[in-house]
């Protein structure tokens, strides 16, 4: 099944539940009318929360950058010995 169909089925299920709630009016109609709005708002909150939390806990690895610099120096020495042209004149260093 194409993925979009799965999502549409989910939406359909939600709207069926919603319509049933509307028709049977187990809870007051004014509340039921607002339910989809709540759904969208909570989805948005979820998204923002996930981005925010992810941003705060963004895994970083400063020590790997240091190790990489060591590796680069080591590699350059070895390659220079072997006659590979690793002169970095044309390159720009960003770190």
């Amino acid at each position: 099944m194409k993925h979009i169909l799965k999502i549409l089925t989910l939406l359909l299920a939600f709207s069926v539940i919603w319509i049933i709630l509307l028709e049977t009016s187990v809870i007051p109609r004014t509340y039921t009318w607002l339910l989809p709005v709540y759904l969208i708002v909570s989805l948005g909150c979820y998204g923002l929360l996930m981005v925010g939390v992810g941003l705060m806990l963004f895994p970083t690895c400063p020590q790997d950058a240091v190790l990489l610099q060591k590796d680069i120096i080591e590699a350059k020495e070895f390659l220079k010995d072997k006659g590979v042209d690793v002169g970095s004149d044309r390159e720009r260093t960003l770190l």
């Binding site: 963004f58 895994p59 970083t60």
Partner: peptide, 16 residues
């Protein structure tokens, strides 16, 4: 795992 050298903007887009 982890990332090094990204600014806030890059992290934000990546997360989003």
């Amino acid at each position: 795992g982890g990332v090094h050298g990204w600014n806030l903007m890059r992290k934000l887009t990546s997360r989003g």
